[in-house]
Structures are given as C-alpha cells and as structure tokens.
Design a protein around this nucleic acid. Structure first.
Lengths: 121, 121
DNA sequence: TCGCTGGATAGACGGATGTCAAATTAGATG
DNA sequence: CATCTAATTTGACATCCGTCTATCCAGCGA
C-alpha cells in the first residue's frame, strides 16, 4: 500500500535448507540470526503468539498494548522488530493499526529444524 | 518440586504447542526466548549447522574452532550457550570433546512454527 | 613426576538491546 | 482550524552480550 518502508529484506536467504543440511554461509547465518534475534524476547514471542492465534488473523495494536505492563512505545518497538524480521506485517485502517503474521515466514522456519531421516539403513 | 530446574531446564515448557495455538504464558515465553536467544547469533547458528550436518553425528571441538576466525574461548562460550539451551550435548573422550545435536529439541522447535489449516472463509 | 595439548573459566571492555518519558505523526471529529 | 486519540519516533539510561587476554583444569605420554 502506501509507503510502508521496505526496511530490511530478510526474505531470501537461509530460509529453506534445514540446519542439518549444507553448510550455512556467513551471510546466510547472519540473516537467519536476525530472525531468531527477533524471536529471542519473551514479549515479542507473546506478541507473535497473540497475533498468530487471534480470531480473524488480525490483531489491533490497541489490544496488544493492553495485554502487557509496558508502555505503548515499548510495544511499538517490539512490533517493529518483528516486522523488520519479516514475521509480521501491519496495516493502518483509519485510526487503528492491525498486524498479522506472514505465514510463509513461519512455515519456512519450521523446515529449518527438520532432521534427515534418522537411522539410515 | 518436581519441576525444580537444575541449572537451566528449558526442556519442559513451551515446546510443543504451535505459536498459533493457545496463549503462551509469561514463563513459557521466557523459556522459549532463551532457546531463540541461543540461536540468535551467526556463529552459534553455523556451529549448530556444522554439528548437525557432520557425518557421524558428532563434531570435535578442535575441528569447530578452526572454522572461525575467533579465539578458542569464544567458541567454547558459544558452545556453552547452545548446550545450556538444550540444543546440543557434549561428551569428553580422552583428550577431545565431541558435541552432537539433541534431535528432540530441533524437532519440537519445528512444530512451533506449524500453522493451523488456513481457513479460507 | 613433569610437560604438553585440548578445552573451559574468569574478568574486562565496547557495542547492542529493552525500557521509559517526551515529542511527533496520522485520522477522526468538533 | 482546534483538539482528541492511536501509534510511532526520538533520545537517554541501565543492562546484557560477544569478544578478547589471561588463567585454570583434564588427559596423555615421556
């Protein structure tokens, strides 16, 4: 839509091959680390959880803010981190801003932890 | 007191339910965050990658250290973080120490990012 | 026993990160 | 336009984290 800042593109690299696969390049590891860094905070995990599990797929910031004993700027900061990691995306509708998860991102992370068939012949 | 954590017991909580599932408790989110924090460093990701993909399932620290332009204490520190997160475990055999992944841990993380069947209204 | 080597620990230092208060932007409504 | 509310940005501050050097511990072999 309008001018949603592109921010950082963490979408291409190191998203598909499992950790048990071919060697991660330095750059791939760095990009991946950014995503996990975004997930490495309890508040952000709960935010992502709330957004991912809300009925309708969208959560209003106004609702998220009330769920924590933190100031609005702090919640806003965490949402920005999640957004920059490509895990969520936001949209303003009138007075309020709504966030939803980027399913593709989560699915790809899932594949990262896939293990090769244990016990080969 | 059956749930008394020894050092850092990150094994029980928040391991199975997907992020899109029921609300994460504060404690669950905190424990999960520890695991992701362990994964939020490029060096640790590459270490885990190397350990997970090495033939035989075990990697000698002596080999891991040589793969980075970092001092041995730094590598040792990163391995400790991964170990405390429950992602790897080490064993000393004679002069050398070998690390291997904890498959259960990785598999569970995979499930975290599973999404419910997309509901097209 | 001594000495050598692989690995872990301790302490220090600089840069990153989470939090808040204050200021700012964007829509809605008088 | 004036003003109110929702949300973000800015700047400051305390804490945390990655890295190093120096030191210590554990096996092995002469």
């Amino acid at each position: 839509m309008s001018k949603m800042p592109k921010l950082e593109d963490v979408t291409d690299p190191a998203c598909c091959a499992p950790l048990s696969g071919p060697a991660l390049s330095e750059a791939e590891a760095a990009e991946l680390a950014k995503v996990f860094k975004a997930l490495s905070d309890p508040v952000r995990l709960r935010l992502l959880n709330m957004i991912a599990s809300v009925d309708g797929g969208e959560a209003c910031v106004c609702d998220l803010t009330g769920a924590f004993e933190l100031t609005a700027p702090t919640i806003s900061h965490h949402l920005k981190v999640l957004r920059q990691a490509g895990l969520i995306e936001g949209e303003r509708r009138g007075t309020w801003v709504y966030y939803r998860v980027v399913p593709d991102r989560l699915t790809r992370l899932s594949g990262l932890f896939a293990l090769p068939a244990l016990v080969p012949a």
